[in-house]
């Protein structure tokens, strides 16, 4: 039975922990997906983006 499960006792039983988990999960998932997709995009386009050519033009103080 799912009722006695560890997750149920820890999270789903109370609304407070449930909402907290959803919010934290959302933040973590979004950060992870952002970082992964940016890594894919930057790797795929290496050498073409502004970050890759910027060093030619920024005057170091």
């Amino acid at each position: 039975m799912i009722k006695r499960s560890f997750l149920y006792q820890l999270i789903f039983k109370r609304t407070g922990t449930m909402v907290l988990t959803a919010v934290l999960g959302g933040i973590i998932l979004e950060t992870a997906i952002d970082n992964i997709s940016e890594a894919i995009f930057f790797k795929y386009n290496k050498g073409k983006l502004w970050d890759d050519i910027k060093h030619n033009y920024v005057k170091d103080v």
Partner: peptide, 16 residues
């Protein structure tokens, strides 16, 4: 074009 692929970014040196 250097930017015509589904995931291709612009060639920024070329924009410049």
């Amino acid at each position: 074009w250097s930017h015509s692929g589904v995931l291709d970014a612009y060639d920024h040196a070329s924009i410049r």
